[in-house]
Structure formats: structure tokens, C-alpha cells
């Protein structure tokens, strides 16, 4: 289905305003991820922030996060994702008309 993609992902995410805070509001324990066989976060995250590594772990960057909650909801491994909201005023800011 990916052949339908009409704009590349970087361009897609560039349409969204993020006020990036200094604190990573979500952290991923890659040691836990290594034992994960599903890694649903990789395909489910609408911002595509979970990158599988060659060692079986996950590389995660919090900066362009929608704060939706999908990742911790689909995660099968207790303790892999530590999820909080960004500090007040930071994170995604959806557009006014």
C-alpha cells in the first residue's frame, strides 16, 4: 500500500507545528524492546517515531510526537514505554484556520 504515498514523510510532518521541549516526555527502554517480537509501535505510530535497530532494539525520538497514546496502548511489553504528556505549552500545536 505504501506505493500510494503522495508526499514523503518528512514533508508530511513538516506541516505540523511542534514546540519542542527539552524533556523527553516519552522514553523507550530499548533493552525491553529487544525481546519484543511484534514491535507494533513501529507501524502504528502516526508520526513514525519508532525506528527498529539492527540489534533488535528501538530508537525513539520524542520531538515530533502527536501525544496520541497509540504507542503505549499497542505496546505488549510492560515497562518498554514510559509515557507522559509534554510539559505545559510544549509539544504538538494544531493549526487554527
Amino acid at each position: 500500500m505504501s506505493s500510494f504515498a503522495d508526499i514523503d514523510f518528512e514533508e508530511r510532518m513538516a506541516t505540523v507545528e511542534f514546540r519542542v521541549g527539552t524533556r523527553a516526555h516519552i522514553t523507550v527502554d530499548s533493552n525491553v524492546c529487544r525481546s519484543c517480537t511484534t514491535k507494533s509501535c513501529v507501524t502504528c505510530c502516526p508520526a513514525d517515531l519508532f525506528v527498529p535497530m539492527s540489534d533488535g532494539g528501538i530508537l525513539f525520538n520524542y520531538e515530533h510526537c502527536f501525544e496520541c497514546g497509540t504507542c503505549y496502548m499497542v505496546c505488549n511489553n510492560e515497562g518498554a514505554i514510559n509515557w507522559t504528556y509534554p510539559d505545559g505549552g510544549q509539544g504538538v500545536v494544531f493549526r487554527r484556520a
Binding site: 500500500m1 505504501s2 500510494f4 504515498a5 503522495d6 514523510f9 508530511r12 511484534t38 507494533s40 507501524t43 502504528c44 502516526p46 513514525d48 497509540t70 496502548m73 499497542v74
Partner: peptide, 21 residues
């Protein structure tokens, strides 16, 4: 459905692109 998305290995923006096509 999150539980379907969990197992389908398809990305959300691909589903939008599919609908747009």
C-alpha cells in the same frame, strides 16, 4: 481499530493515501 492496526503492519498515513486514491 487499534487492535487491528497492531497486527496489520500497515501505517496510518498509508491508509489515508489508499483512501485518497
Amino acid at each position: 481499530s487499534l487492535s487491528d492496526l497492531q497486527t496489520a503492519k500497515v501505517r496510518p498515513e498509508e491508509l489515508i493515501a489508499n483512501l485518497k486514491a
